[in-house]
Each structure stands twice: as C-alpha cells, then as structure tokens.
Design a protein around this nucleic acid. Structure first.
Lengths: 239, 239
DNA sequence: CGAATTGTTGATATATCTCAACAATAGTGG
DNA sequence: CCACTATTGTTGAGATATATCAACAATTCG
C-alpha cells in the first residue's frame, strides 16, 4: 500500500548523506523512517517559522532556499544564515522551546517536518543518528564562528569572496556547477549577512568583474578565476 | 571509600543547574555520575585545546574564565566567545572530530573533562540529559546569531553596552554582583569579540564614564545606570 | 504597459581605524 | 622591597573604508 503523498520516506530521499547519515544498513534506515513526517510547501517570501513561534519540529530542506534573520527592537535586521536543500533549519528553537529567529523562503520550497520528539526517540535508539544530530548542531556552531570572523575582522572584498566560495562549495557538493551560481538572495540580503551595505556588495561584485575574476549579470555569477577569489578570501592582499 | 581527588561527582557539583540539568532524581544523578572524569587545571594563558587538536571531550568549566578564538591564515584573530564557570566548551570539535578553534584560559582555571563517548552513552539512556545536551548546543547557536547581529548591524556603543549587560547577567546568575564587574579580558580581546579596535573600546568606556553611566578603573567596572546601558543596547539613540 | 523592486554608480559624509605619545599597572629579578 | 621592563590602557590627530544620499538603469510583477 502506498503512503499518502504528503509523507516521505527518509531512506529513499535523494539527499541521503546530507540531512541524515549515509551508509546505514536497512534496519537503521527503517528506524530513521520513524522520523517520518509530513512534507510542507513554503511559498517564496513566506515564513517557515518566526521569532517567538513555539518550537516543535526541525525542518530538513528538500528543495528551495531559505534565509534566517534576527532583528533588533528598532527594526534593524541581520541575516544570520542561508540554508539550501539537504540542510536542517530550526535548531535555534530547541533551547527555549521557541524559535528565536525568522526563517523565510527565498524561493518556492519544500521541507520535511521532523518532530523534535521523534528525533529524541530515534537518537536514543540509534547511536549513529545521535552522533549525527550532534554533528549537525556542532557544524552550525563552527559555521557561526567563521561568520563572526568575517564580520569582525575581514574587509569587504574578503567577505564577499569568502561568501561566494562558501556558496559554490555547498552547491558543488549537491552536484551543481562550481563556476556558475544563480543567487537566490538580493544584494541587500547578502550585505546584511556580511555586515555590509547593499551598495558595497554591488561595488565589490563590480570590482571583481572589472578584474576579470568573475562575470556578473544580475543574480547570475560566473566565476572565471576561482583561485583569485581564494587568494582574496585568504587575505593575501599586497598592500 | 573516597574517590581519588582528581575525579568529580557531578551530582554534588555546586554548579548543578548550569552544566547539567537541575531537579533530577537520585537515580538520574547517579547516571550522570557516569560522565565522571578527571578534573584538569589550566594555568592562565595556557591552551585548553587548539585548532586542529583531536576532539574527544567536552569541558565543563568549574572555575576560571576562557576565551575561544578563530584565526585567519595571515594571523588575524577573532575572539568568538568568552566562557565562565558553569558553561561548556569544546562543542566545536564534534563535527569534524577535531577542534576548530583555540580555547585559552584568561585566569587560572579548572575544568571537568567529559568524554564525548560518555555523553553519547548517558544521553542514550536518559531522555532528560539528551534534551539538555541539545539545549546546550542550541543555546550556543542562538548566542552566535546574536553576536552576528552585533557585529553586522550595531554601532560601537551598542556593542559595548550589550557586551557589558550580557556579562552582568551571566555573572548575576552565578551569584555575583550585578553592578560590579571585574573584566577578565583585555580591551583588545573585548574589541576582537565585538569587531572593534581596542582604542574604540577604551574610548567607549570613557564616554560611558563621562556620561555617568558607569565608572571604569582598569578592569573594574561599576555600573551606575544599568537602565541607561539598556537604553543604549536597545538602540534608542536620538539622532 | 506601468509600477514596484532590485541593482549600479557617483559624490560626499562619517564612524571607526591607524598611528603615536604617554600613563598606569603588573610582572620580574636582583 | 625596589627598580626595571613589558604589558595594558588612555587619549589625540589624522586617515580611510564603508556608509549615506541620490540619480538612474534594469528587471520583475501584476
């Protein structure tokens, strides 16, 4: 008998190895299927969750692109991350049982809803899965530290170069081209993430284009000299 | 029979409620004692772990004060956090089985070494503890997002004010005065954490002192008008 | 097609950095 | 305990990277 179409079987997910561990045996995959949940569509511009929402689930992104934002009381907003297919979002909600940021779809998206209760249960039964969950959380902590380094110590060109390299690496791991990116976010969102104003992001793209490092056409970026981007990202300026 | 003096019994730790959940029953505390490990002293200025070190343990801080730093290849350094008694450090190491930052004692310190393997084991047996661990990781993720907001969107005075408020809150939760702080770190370390130069930190302290918001004498800070600090931290400038 | 959004570029402003001198404190060794 | 040195902190003057303001171009959307 077929499952209803709004449920999802993890063990058959083509993103195996991203959200969930790869290389398990059938029995373990069967257990992971206990995490089984509904899928949920999120339209572009819509919220997956908001700051203050009650936390009950994590979200594994099947398709689409999200941003997470934190805001100050006076309305200034900071993009704290971008999430793509195969990544997990919602981890911020665990500590206080409510979300502490907004997650917004930058394009039409689909997520797997994973009840946190099920996570606790499966992790308790399955060593590998528990370790995997800790790894996912730890990865986010390491990523954050790296973003702090950018925001606190790097210059505009270094930030933009690192941002592009990070994106290409993540896209490449998912089978996309390493030289051609279609940005899902505006200059303003990139700027917010990098602690720069949108004009500075735009100017930096233009400078890289002038130097022949890449070609920019709106949100389409073609990287001609990845080694040059790496040089800039690694701060080997000569001045 | 007494345990050797370099071992520690969690259930009797006076920091109960910080590193580990409060309000458990005796049986659960007994299990948590399975996390039992050696204590380790770390002298001021010494490393608890370094970027690249093999990861095997988490560290619960019993006394003392630490900073964690990430560095760029060309030697620039960014302080990614300050940790005090009752907090856990080393979480960055889980994802790659090696540490990705340096942890350095800012004063003579003592930590409880908690084998990660034991964490996995106890978490598997004890629902509450597993949830507690996820909360600790989640808290760090939320804290990071808040730091990103500071680094990316806030002005120098806002950053310093928020930094001082955060410190006082954490110290207050541990029974210290809410109006008197002894900083464990240099202006340079504060600046690095906040994405400012040490001179800017110093000038901001001086400005707060001129305004009567606080008194500064080297690393001794006495906060006279916490409400003023909160006003500044919440960005209610009038300009 | 027209309006709204997004992106580019220039001119100018400014918050913070840099450089520098000096003061205060802490650490060291005789 | 007292110099003596290194480290840390303060303050000023000037430099600069990035922000701000503004005009316009390109694109998207209804």
């Amino acid at each position: 008998m077929n499952k209803p179409s709004n449920t999802v079987t993890y063990s058959k997910c083509n993103l195996r190895g991203f959200c969930i561990p790869a290389g398990l045996n059938d029995k373990d995959y069967a257990r992971i299927d206990e995490l089984i949940t509904v899928r949920q569509r999120v339209q572009r511009g819509h919220y997956l969750f908001r700051n203050g929402d009650k936390f009950s689930s994590l979200y594994a992104i099947r398709s689409g692109f999200f941003k997470t934002c934190v805001a100050t009381k006076d309305g200034r907003e900071q993009v704290s991350g971008f999430q793509m297919a195969g990544e997990i979002t919602g981890l911020d909600g665990i500590v206080k049982s409510e979300h502490s940021c907004d997650a917004i779809a930058l394009e039409d998206a689909e997520v797997c809803v994973i009840k946190y209760e099920s996570v606790l249960k499966v992790a308790q039964e399955m060593d590998v899965f528990q370790h995997h969950m800790y790894k996912i959380l730890s990865r986010e902590i390491v990523r954050s530290a790296s973003v702090m380094l950018h925001l606190g110590s790097l210059r505009a060109e270094e930030r933009v170069a690192t941002f592009l390299l990070d994106l290409t690496q993540r896209l490449q791991a998912r089978g996309f081209s390493e030289s051609e990116i279609v940005l899902r976010m505006t200059r303003e969102e990139i700027g917010s993430y990098l602690g720069l104003k949108l004009e500075t992001v735009s100017r930096t793209f233009s400078k890289f284009a002038r130097d022949g490092t890449l070609a920019v056409k709106q949100r389409h970026i073609r990287i001609h000299k990845p080694e040059e981007l790496m040089r800039i990202a690694n701060h080997q300026f000569c001045h």
